[in-house]
């Protein structure tokens, strides 16, 4: 009824009405869930951030931007942001390099390749909480890392109780466990490179490992790399499970990250839900900005 013009154009399609009706029916459950459990909380989060709100005492009054002011003036939040930036810079860089190296290694096909690759991937599917607990041992005084270091005469270090070493140990663990995931993306990228390019290049004298990397792999995998970096950055900014389980943000706030701040504000202190929401909105804005920035860069790169 609405689109007589369209019907004339598409005389072949007899059941246009039925098709669009089914279209709406099939997406209805998804839309309902997304609206109620994603969009609504996102707006609700913004609303809460403008109020002083204590749901248990049923106290609520408008607070304007004072929650945001409190977050931005909080030295703890500043520490958490600096920490997560430090973490993101280190982890994303190293895990990307490690993922690429592992992919180069496992791109060679031998009998043992498939099995080895499958085993290396296990930490990537392990529950972060379970992995954190195993790594409490790995970095404990009696753990594997200290055992390894003791071979070089290094005195045992209590990694997770040290303000110097706790955060690097968490970084090492996450680099170790996330790299295999991105390795698989690189492997897919490597396999998409047509073999004749490598052959042609080797006729042109590009045979050494470094030259191959510089002139073939680096440019042809740039799209994969940016994807790996974008996903890595988004994941790193949301660091929570490992820190919560292993150090809880300590010792002396050396592993304090924004999500710990958000969680503590919501659950440890009463009546600071508004502050917690304000902090999560600030984090959201930062993640969004980073993503958009990278998307834009990515687009330019893709069409270059």
């Amino acid at each position: 009824m609405l689109s007589t013009g369209r019907q004339n154009k598409k005389t072949v399609k007899l059941n246009d009405g039925m098709e669009s009706r089914y279209g709406y029916i099939l997406i209805a459950p998804l839309l309902l869930l997304i609206v109620v459990f994603i969009f609504f909380p996102a707006f609700y989060s913004f609303a809460i951030s403008l109020f002083y709100y204590n749901p248990f005492g049923h106290q609520i009054h408008f607070a304007g931007i004072s929650n945001y002011a409190e977050v931005l003036h909080s030295s703890l939040f500043a520490i958490s942001v600096l920490n997560v930036m430090y973490y993101t810079a280190v982890v994303v860089t190293l895990q990307t390099i490690l993922a690429f190296s592992l992919a180069m290694l496992f791109n060679y096909r031998f009998r043992i390749t498939r099995m080895s690759r499958a085993l290396v991937f296990v930490p990537a599917i392990t529950s972060p909480v379970a992995l954190s607990i195993i790594f409490i041992w790995v970095f404990s005084r009696q753990g594997m890392v200290n055992y390894f270091l003791s071979m070089f005469g290094v005195q045992p270090i209590n990694f997770f109780f040290s303000t110097t070493f706790a955060f690097p140990a968490i970084m090492a663990m996450n680099i170790f466990s996330t790299a295999p995931y991105f390795m698989v993306m690189y492997l897919a990228g490597l396999q998409a490179i047509p073999p004749h390019i490598l052959e042609a290049a080797s006729l042109d004298g590009i045979r050494s490992g470094w030259k191959r990397f510089r002139y073939i792999y680096a440019p042809m995998l740039s799209f994969t790399t940016f994807l790996v970096v974008v996903l890595g950055v988004i994941g790193s900014m949301q660091l929570f499970d490992q820190v919560f389980v292993i150090t809880g943000g300590g010792p002396a706030n050396s592993t304090y990250v924004p999500l710990i701040y958000i969680y503590n504000r919501a659950f440890l202190y009463f009546g600071t839900l508004g502050v917690s929401s304000a902090a999560s909105f600030i984090l959201f804005a930062v993640i969004m900005a980073v993503t958009l920035l990278q998307r834009r860069y990515l687009k330019e790169l893709r069409w270059a």
Partner: peptide, 19 residues
């Protein structure tokens, strides 16, 4: 729908909790 991938779950989780 695809855009919701940009909204990280932890970020809306406090509001979801209150909800």
């Amino acid at each position: 729908v695809l855009g919701t991938l940009m909204i990280p779950f932890p970020v809306v989780s406090v509001a979801s909790y209150v909800f």
